[in-house]
Each structure stands twice: as structure tokens, then as C-alpha cells.
Simulated assay, not measured.
Amino acid sequence: MKKYILHQHKAIFVCLVCVAAVISSCKKDNESSAAPVISRVRTVSKDVTIKNVTTRVTLDSSTIADQVKQVAFDSTVTSGRLNGLYAIIGSNLETTSAVLFNGVAAYFNPALVTSNGIIITIPINTPWGAGQTDNITVITKGGHVDYHFAIQQPTATITSFTPLAGNSGDVVTITGTNFSGVSGVRFGNADATITGIPTNTQLQVRVPAGVVQAFIFVTTPGGTVQSPTPFGFKYLVYDDALANGWWVGGWNGGDTPNFSNSTPVRRGTHSIAVTYLGGYAGFQIGNGGGSISIADMSSIKISIYGGAGSGSHNVRIMVMGLDKDGKQALRDDEGVVVTLKAGEWTDYTIPLSSFGTRPITLEQLRIQELSGITSPETIYIDDIGFI
């Protein structure tokens, strides 16, 4: 009799377990079949935090004080950045099988999914900008839901610019990424004028007045980015004045240059007027403070204006210093020969590798007349430096 009752109790218990399982299963099925809802997206932090806001208030006609108020800060956002971590808030989200940003599937950890939220990172390759749907799509067993959410433009990058140095008004081409919607370009604190039609990967701008050396900054909806290297000279020998510590030499009429010549000038207010009194005269300047390292520099840049009668005449530019073995890199008769143009400025950018054995230190600069003139001839020199 007792054995029968025991079996009966076991049967009842099994039935109750089965009923509970069925009820639980039905409940899960009902939850799973409910359509997903997205109410908002927030940053992964507390929904509401308190922050201090300081304002200036006038207590009377002569007293000003700081007033601190605590205000609520809502972490809800309507757009997100690539690779940013966010929480999608809503309901019926527990059976999420896929989340897409502008059609690109995002990885998510199922352990970070609940009925009311999904913690997720926006894929780095998500498309952004014009032509996109600007939607988050969440797919569950109960269906799918779209929610308007824009992807922010990434910060631009500057990979290169050319030329590496230039004068006011020269056009510089900047190459990089994410230039769409560019709102400004500046060289240091000087605003540059954008010329032509910018693309997502290239800009052209005019060098602002007065810039000798400066980093380039590009501003877009994604923020402001700085060039990895500065525009202009790494080492400046002469702009409107000769660098400190430099001496002046020369031979056969090349030793009386005017460093404060006011016209013509390439940039700024002064240039160097060099009058050669005879053929093969030499303009010569040198560093009196010891050798200057130019090992990390690529070229010398110099601007020369040919005076009256100098057209088609040649001069030899020499960068004197020591090579990597500590030996003189150039002999007196070596250098790079350039041809003058009368009545106009010519900008010469000469790779240091062009000077025979490449100098890695700088001791002197020489510009020698090579055409064998028999009457005085004047040339003008400006913007001497290394890039």
C-alpha cells in the first residue's frame, strides 16, 4: 500500500515538473515572438550623471563671484563614432541574432544582451556620410527594428603634402583621408585659402602670408588634425636676416652683399643683393658656432632673382660640410649648377644627395658666378634654408 502511494506521489511530481516546463517554455516563446523595440542609444556609462557647471554672477556693482550648479547630464546620443562602445536600449531584445550599422554587421557578446539592452561596438568599417541610411537594424526572433542613428565622420589624417616648403601664395597639395566637409585649413595660426574642389583624399591651399615654418591643421566635421611634420624649413639660414652666429666672406667682389635689400624680395621685407664685380666671384656665408647637423634634412631650398643682364648665366650652389666619415663632403669646384632667369624669382629645391658625397653637417654655403662676366652683375637671394 505504501509502495503504491509512493509511486503515486512520484507521478504527481513528474506531472508538475512537466507543467512548469511547458508554462516556462510558452512564456519564453511568447517573449521571443514579441517585436523588438529600440527607445534610445546611450554611451556605456550611467544613464544620468551629475556634473558641476560654473557660471559668473554679479553680486553687486563691484563684486563678481563663481556660482556652481549641479545639473543632470543625459548620456543618450543620436550619433556614434567608429569603434565606439554603446548601449542600445529598448525591449524584447533578448533573442537578438544580428545588429547592423548602415548595413554592416557588428559583433556582439551574447552575454551582454538582455531583454532591455545590447552592449555593442560600432564596426571600424561602417560607411558614413551622404548616401547612407543612418540606421541601426536589430534582428531578433520576433522580427527586426530600424532606429535612426548617424555615424560620425572620422577624424581626418594627413599623410603628406607637397611642396615641403614654399612662399606666400604658393599652392600646397595636402594628401590624406576623410577630408569631406573640410571647413578650414591653417598653417600654425594663419588661415589658408582652399583652392579648387576638395576631395575626400586631397586638398589644395595657398600658403598664408608670413609663414616660414608651421604645422598644417585641417578641420572637418570629424575634428582637427595636425600634419606629422611641419611645413617650411627645418633649419633657416636667411629670411629677412642672416641667422645668428653666421659670418660673411666671399671673393673677387662677392664679399660685399647687402643683407637689407628691400626690392625685389621673395617673401617678407628684405633680400640679399649680391653684386659680382668679375667672373667666378663667390658669395660666401658660414656658421661660426660649429657644425650644424643636417643629417635628417633632405634638401636645400633657395630663391634667386636674376638682375639685369644675368639671364641664362650660371651660378654654382655649394653646401660645404662634413660627410658621415668626418671628411670634407665637397671640393671647392663641386656643387650644383643652376641657370638664372633675369627679372624673376626662381625657387630651387636641391636634394642634398646631389652634392657629390652627401654632407651631414653644415659649415658654409657658397654661390659662385660661373659665366665669366666682365662687368658688375647683381643677383638677389632670399629664403635660404633646409627642409
Rank of each mutant, 00 (worst) to 15 (best):
I5A: 12
L6N: 11
H9K: 13
H9V: 04
A11V: 13
A20F: 03
K28W: 15
S33H: 11
V41N: 04
N52S: 12
N52Y: 06
R56Q: 10
V57A: 10
L59S: 10
L59C: 01
D66C: 06
Q70N: 11
A72Y: 11
S79K: 06
I88Q: 08
E94K: 13
V99E: 03
A105F: 06
P110Q: 14
P110N: 12
A111G: 09
T114D: 05
G117C: 09
G117F: 10
I122A: 10
P123Q: 08
I124H: 11
N125F: 04
N125Y: 10
T126P: 05
W128T: 02
T140S: 08
K141N: 10
V145I: 13
D146F: 05
I151W: 00
Q152S: 11
P154W: 09
T155F: 05
N167T: 11
S168M: 10
T177A: 09
N178G: 05
S180E: 12
V185K: 03
I194F: 01
T195W: 02
T195V: 15
T195A: 07
T201E: 09
Q202E: 12
F217D: 04
Q226K: 11
Q226Y: 07
Y235R: 13
D239I: 11
L242I: 08
G245N: 09
G249W: 04
G250S: 02
N252S: 07
G253H: 01
T256I: 06
N261G: 09
R267L: 02
A273N: 01
V274H: 00
G286S: 09
S291Q: 08
S293R: 08
S293Y: 07
M297Q: 13
I300S: 05
N314I: 00
V319H: 13
G321I: 06
V336C: 02
E344G: 04
W345G: 03
Y348D: 00
P351I: 07
Q364P: 01
R366G: 02
